[in-house]
């Protein structure tokens, strides 16, 4: 998200530190009455301080489940089974006790939700939303917490923060509410912010403001951001790296620029084509991806995108392709991996 060279240097320096987030072969299996759904199916990545990872995929691709599993909001229980490891600031999220987990949530990691209309309790004032965690988790007294809450509102660009503290969520606009939700997530200065479709429920003009806000906050606070979106357009220019998810798996991951320049997976290519562009001539049909995401109770054998893929060959339906590094002219492209037998834009291979 940061574009200045100073920030880039800082990031490469940070990469040598312990990553803020390590996800290792994470799998979330949800038990439904119709059968088990592998919503997250073996995902691994790391995220360093100040870095932004964009996670992109259609509805139902498992990106929100991924976010919530990383948070530890989804854990092994009667309705689901989680395997693999998540380390946030070095702590193994799924090995923490309930109280340690609460400490983690109140401290190292914050979450921004999709719909600010539902993410705020309608019967609680804005101030209470912010002060309760400051008081419970930070041990602040009432005036301290209130002062800090006003600071937080100012930080997320809300005018007249003192007055807003005494208002109810329904008295604020959607954009303002999302700012409050972000302020809530930032209350304890997390090292990692998981933003799950933070702009989807907002007007286009407000979307931009919120994304700019997240970028500014990242520069100021140096946190890592996991930006989940169904819209590659939202992630473009905001993420340092992008992971494209399809049916619970990462099908391609690369530095943002490389991914947008030369996607290797046909699904990524199709997603990019589906972004409407202003310079398109009028009356041209918008590109769409035919078909629907697979039934996740019984996903296709082999590549899960094969049934919708225009480049599919017989071997695509035999065994799932693994996520392997991309090669250009016989040399591995650092940071770029994809899972496809018949990649596009891969002239050098």
């Amino acid at each position: 998200m940061s574009s200045s060279s100073a920030a880039l240097q800082e990031r490469s320096g940070a990469a040598r530190e312990t990553p803020v987030l390590v996800v290792d072969d994470l799998r979330t299996q949800i038990h439904t009455p119709h059968g088990d759904v592998q919503a997250v199916d073996g995902i691994s990545f790391t995220l360093g301080r100040g870095e932004t990872l964009g996670v992109v995929g259609e509805s139902g691709s498992g990106k929100s489940v991924l976010g919530r599993t990383i948070m530890g909001l989804y854990t092994t229980g009667p309705t689901m089974t989680v395997t693999g490891r998540v380390l946030i600031a070095g702590k193994d999220v799924h090995a923490l006790s309930a109280s340690e987990l609460r400490e983690l949530w109140g401290g190292d990691v914050g979450m921004v939700f999709q719909d600010p209309m539902t993410a705020l309790n309608p019967v609680k004032k804005v101030g209470v939303h912010l002060t309760e965690s400051l008081r419970k988790r930070r041990g602040m007294n009432r005036p301290q917490a209130k002062a800090r809450a006003a600071e937080l509102l100012a930080l997320v660009g809300i005018p007249e923060p003192r007055r807003r503290l005494d208002q109810y969520p329904h008295e604020l606009s959607g954009g303002m509410r999302q700012r409050v939700v972000i302020a809530m997530a930032l209350a304890n200065e997390p090292a990692l912010l998981i933003a799950d479709e933070p702009t989807t429920a907002l007007d286009v003009t407000v979307q931009r403001q919120i994304l700019d806000l997240l970028a500014r906050l990242q520069d100021e606070l140096g946190m890592a951001i996991m930006l989940i979106s169904h819209n590659l357009g939202v992630v473009a220019g905001r993420a340092d790296r992008v992971a494209v998810m399809y049916a619970g798996r990462v099908v391609e991951t690369a530095d943002a620029a490389a991914l947008f320049d030369a996607p290797h997976h046909p699904y990524t290519e199709a997603l990019l084509e589906a972004i409407p562009r202003l310079h398109q001539p009028p009356h041209v049909r918008l590109a769409a991806i035919d078909g629907a995401p697979p039934n996740m109770v019984a996903p296709p054998v082999g590549c899960r995108f094969a049934p919708r893929c225009r480049y599919a060959q017989p071997d695509c339906t035999e065994a799932p392709p693994s996520l392997d590094p991309a090669m250009a002219n016989g040399v591995v492209t650092p940071g770029h991996s994809f899972a496809c037998y018949h990649p596009v834009n891969a002239g050098g291979q």
Partner: peptide
């Protein structure tokens, strides 16, 4: 099931706090 319950949880509030302070009134 509401998002604001999840949001309260994600803020690190205890189950008791969520039950009495967030869930009961609505």
């Amino acid at each position: 099931q509401e998002d604001f319950i999840l949001a309260a949880k994600a803020k690190g509030m205890s189950a008791r706090h969520i039950m009495f302070s967030d869930a009961l009134r609505p």
